[in-house]
Design a protein around this nucleic acid. Structure first.
Lengths: 146, 146
DNA sequence: ATAAACCCTGCACCTAACTCCTTAGCAAGA
DNA sequence: TCTTGCTAAGGAGTTAGGTGCAGGGTTTAT
């Protein structure tokens, strides 16, 4: 007689039953209400939370951050703190995006110059100039030493 | 008398000495030449490879993919295969970027509507309509069931 | 009334990717 | 020569994030 059972939730959100139970245990999702048999009875509010968890996890948040967020949410009047977490994660996401963009540039460069690059690589002719060329692609801000 | 020693490489690329040794062992980087003492002697060609590994790893490639790539590179005439791997990873990177963009939208939405959202969440008033609202944000293409 | 198909719990186990530990060799300065 | 600080190798330990399994209960269909 569950409203939505474990299996349906798995299908909807894409976490396995085991994973859902694991998340509940470590505190990523709040304790789910049970029906008369002790079976989990997921409500829309739970699905909403799981939806958010799914997105944030896919975006690369750690379980730790998600647990912190879940705790704040369950323990009352910490809306500014929660909002701060979301904003912080948004900031991280933006940084990550920028990082990925740079890596994409590098990949494109590597693909474009592949023949040349590999030829040098194999013959051992690749020298400091080539490495310099890569440093200049702005991924690292280190001082090359003599 | 190393050209560039382990510690310098750590500083330059940002992998710890242990990690460098680990990578060499599992085949992410080729066997590094040694000096008369048996100490590793990193050459520009090695740094170039490490640079690429650093970027691809940061972009989320698994060690497995990197090992495959490294093997192809060491074992001769597989340039098309290597190029294919890079292109495949570029494709994955693009997908991931799109995914992150969607999640960013969700986060922004959540932050904007936070007060309202949390109020509903706490009072348990959040209902199927709200979940619908989220489904519509295009992250999932599932059929909601009755 | 028995089987199929769900659900429950606790706990052991797993993979990836490191990270640390121990024991030991070489090397350059006080 | 002694100490400090680098290096080496092999292998055990750690962390994150699950996954599987045994042993049991319920519900529904046949």
């Amino acid at each position: 007689m569950s409203f939505i059972n474990r299996k349906d939730v798995s299908k909807l959100i894409g976490f396995s039953s085991d994973t859902l139970r694991y998340y509940e245990r470590i505190g990523v999702i709040p304790p789910i209400k049970r029906d008369k048999n002790g079976y989990r009875d997921y409500r829309p509010v739970d699905l909403d939370w799981l939806f958010l968890v799914r997105c944030l996890k896919d975006a690369g948040l750690s379980m730790e951050a998600l647990i912190e967020f879940a705790k704040l949410n369950q323990s009352g009047e910490n809306e500014p703190a929660q909002k701060a977490i979301l904003q912080e994660q948004l900031e991280k996401l933006n940084q990550k995006s920028a990082e990925m963009k740079r890596t994409r540039n590098l990949l494109e460069y590597k693909i474009d110059t592949f023949e040349d690059h590999i030829a040098k690589f194999k013959s051992g002719e690749m020298d400091a100039d080539h490495v310099d060329e890569l440093w200049k692609m702005d991924k690292f801000q280190v001082h090359k030493q003599k």
